[in-house]
Computed example of a mutant assay.
Amino acid sequence: MFLVTGATGSLGRRIVRQLRDQGKSVRAFVRLTSNYEELEDRGAEIFIGDLKQDKDIAKACQGVKYIISSHGSGSNAQALDYRANIELIDCAKENQVEHFVFISVLGVDRGYQDSATFKAKREVEKYLMKSGLNYTILRPSGFANNLLPLAERFRETGIYLLIGDPQHRSSIVSTDDLATIAIASVETSAAKNRIFAVGGPNILTREDIPRIFARLFNKEPIIINPPLALFDGLRSGLGLINPQLQKSLGTLRTLLAHEFFCTAEEIALLEFTFNMQMESLESFLLRYLGSN
């Protein structure tokens, strides 16, 4: 039995789908307000709970062999990115879980202080490594599925909003590939007690993304490129009205201000360890959106 948290998120949903396609038992941790009907139809065991409630986590962990922590935090990094994962790790130990897969984030070890999410995930990594559990920590770059709505908007308008330095590099990862790796980690001996950077096979600059859209949809891109200083100004203005919102934008600001890409050596290690070829962003978009 796999326990998957964040089971209705973009990554968690894909993990549950793949597990069920492989005929494996999976318990999907979901909120009552989320859309989990598809997962239930696929044969997943639905566990309705709240990751901010320790008793719900304790119940969800009973009788599971593997845990894949794939939930996000929204605007509550303290409760969800940090506290819920610490409780999951403790309950995994109590229930003698055989392997714990934690979805972290690329760059988590760089000490970015403006992002509560980065700080929380790094502390969880350290706690997991000291826990005595068998683990795999995956540090993905940006998720390819996050670009789907941007691509659809580009197809309609030809407009692409690019905030910050167009030359900053990224390694957008196929969200389907990340799900495959998360599942395979529990049975891959070379992934035991290891940390992997996870990205796509190509290092892309930010301005490469609208060019990919342009090729897919045969449409000349109109790139709007406001400076990061404009975002900072808007964030500061919002902080006068809502200081909590200003803080919650710290992770987005971190992502906009820095590069997040995997080296060729990191991708080669990933492909060798999991015996797979990572999918390019262009291939991912073509699969989901086709072309014009």
Rank of each mutant, 00 (worst) to 15 (best):
L3S: 03
G9H: 12
R14S: 11
S34Q: 14
S34F: 00
Y36R: 01
E38I: 14
L39Q: 13
G43D: 04
A44I: 12
E45M: 11
I46W: 13
I48S: 13
D50Q: 08
K55P: 08
I57G: 02
L88P: 13
A92L: 04
A92G: 14
F100G: 04
F102K: 05
F102D: 04
F102E: 01
D109K: 07
S115I: 08
A120Q: 09
V124Q: 05
E125S: 14
L128G: 08
Y135P: 08
S141N: 15
N145I: 15
N146G: 00
E152Q: 14
G158A: 03
Y160V: 00
I163V: 14
G164E: 01
Q167E: 15
H168C: 02
V173H: 03
T175C: 10
L178C: 05
I181W: 00
A182P: 02
S185Q: 14
V186D: 04
V198S: 06
F213N: 08
K219V: 07
K219N: 13
I223G: 10
I224H: 03
A229M: 09
G233I: 08
L234Q: 15
S236I: 04
P243E: 02
Q246R: 15
C262V: 10
L270Y: 02
T273A: 09
M276N: 00
M278S: 13
R287K: 15
G290K: 02
